[in-house]
Design a protein around this nucleic acid. Sequence first.
RNA 1: GCCGUUGUAGCUCAGUGGUAGAGCACUUCCUUGGUAAGGAAGAGGUCGUGAGUUCAAUUCUCAUCAACGGCUCCA
Length: 644
Amino acid sequence: MMNITFPDGAVRQYEKGVTALDIAKSISEGLARKIIAAEVNGEVWDATRPIENDATLKLLTWDDKGGKSTFWHSSAHLMAESIESMFPGVKFWVGPAVENGFYYDIDLGDRHISEDDLRKLEVKMAELAKQNNAYVRKAIPKAEAIRYFTEKGDEYKLDLLQGLNDGEITFYTQGAFTDLCRGPHLPHTGLIKAIKLTNIAGAYWKGDEKNKQLIRIYGVTFPSQKQLDEYLQMLEEAKKRDHRKLGKELAIFTFDDDVGPGLPLWLPNGTVIIEELEKLAKETEEDAGYKRVVTPHIAKESMYLTSGHLPYYQDSMYPPMELEGIKYYLKAMNCPHHHKIFAAEPKSYKDLPLRLAEYGTCYRYEQSGELFGLMRVRCLHMNDAHIYCTKDQFFQEFKAVNDMYLKYFKIFGIDKYVMRLSLHEPSKLGQKYINEPELWIETEEMVRQVLKETGTPYVEVPDEGAFYGPKIDVQIWSAIGREFTLATNQVDFAQGRRFKLEYTNHNNEADTPLIIHRAPLGTHERFIGFLLEHYAGKFPAWLAPLQVKILPISDKFMDYAKTVLSKLKKAGIRSEVDDRNEKIGKKIRDTELMKVPYMLVIGEKEMNEGKVAIRRQGKGDLGTKDADEFIQEVKTEIEERREG
RNA sequence: GCCGUUGUAGCUCAGUGGUAGAGCACUUCCUUGGUAAGGAAGAGGUCGUGAGUUCAAUUCUCAUCAACGGCUCCA
């Protein structure tokens, strides 16, 4: 007998060789039917794998994270089985579970696969699932495994085997399909009740674009049709707040074929938002001791050679224009221009920290397939600034930037993000990263200290730094689940030297400043794209393109409506009168759909009493108020940038 | 850039080898109506672009451009 300890601390005795599924059955049949896998001593195991020694045990169902990923990984095997039956002789790479489902990477040889094939595969999978085939685990000696896949002619699995040690290799078989796999898996295929293959994509082998491209098929499965339906419903809901859809509906931005891909045109409504954001940035930066500067959109090649950007960035810069033998590039970043401003006049330690800010327009030639609405564009307006400081000032300055981030996030109510400390990768010094090993380690530690001492939660990620230093990125997710960097705060110990930036220190010696690059509001493009989704288009009054819409019940009240309008305008509130010949219900509906924060319904009663009937978007009728009182309240709400 | 899908009116989308339709939006008229769609009439498209097959192409084929879903990449 052996002791099995459960999550609640209870200990029960079982025969050696018992499985988690047996244990579940001993508790209840209902539970046993739901078991997907088990955590044995903290490791996820097959529910059907015998337990031979004392262990802690947690039974995993669909509701556990480990349960879902096991379910989806097993689904990937089931999909592979149906693919192999439809396309005999295909070769498989890997088929992991992902955040929402699973995929399998496949080499189809010369064959093609279409959306229609996915529907056929779904049918085949459902048919195979119904056979309730067990997933059978088998330990295999390495030599035998190599023999198996050599006979099968599958070089991908042989490549995988190279990295594995003899004694740790297992095969899993369900039905007619056998795969090299660490597991774990479901007890049997019958648990997979609802199947949706979502899309076909190309994926480079081992994620390297120099390698052959495999076909990746994504899918998602559930233990019941109801859960699949709910999931698909949720995806539909998410699409409703996609910034590309809202951007069109609310007339925020547009693209035009003649202007070019990735070059957004900001419509009047979007421009209002841009200007409000710039106003916020300018106020905040003024308070924080920044100086504003303005720089040209182009510069000579020599500057980007000095900065070192050219060898790293050339592929994502628009090609140069050449005049009189000199190459000019559209700027892809503002830093070098700002460095030149620093260098324009001799500096003393008394001038530091020097903080230069600009909403800089940059152009980056992103690959066509990478463009994505406003989130990934080729023309961007960056909330940029560079802080030049001494090493002694660094902590204070970096912390102040961090505080500015948090202040902004509070204003916008941004709470779903991850701060990511991006570090260098020592093996790539001199290639992806500037070859200054000591400085990397030193500055990375300083940044880490700021995060720790300010109690900012963060994750560390190697091999994500900028080429000139470590950085903190703020990661967010779009409505459809794609991850983006919203804002960035970077250390730069390289460009100061490259540009020979110097200041005279206390000892009358020349010294090189440290540089902080920071963009708390990222770019207008990505930030507004994010805000559209964050607010689902319902901007707080201070950001709303139109803040108040006056809705006269009939044109008899038009004169009074115009009186109210002129008062609103005088108070600096963006407002309009709906003077269309429509019924009030229609005017309200249209204004609600345009997500205007305040509607003023005006009829005979309001006109006679000098009042306005207030309706708040999404909240309905708020009753009547004296017109002047309403104006004062809205004005305050806007000035305080309240969320509403 | 690569793999896959799509491209019809301002928007959302039907449809067809014999040069096109709906709803909303728009214009005009009727209606002056109190908190999410009043009624009628009208106007609007060389069916993304270029070539090919055909007596005939928006429809079939190819190329190209753009968008979308991924990969790679990134603020």
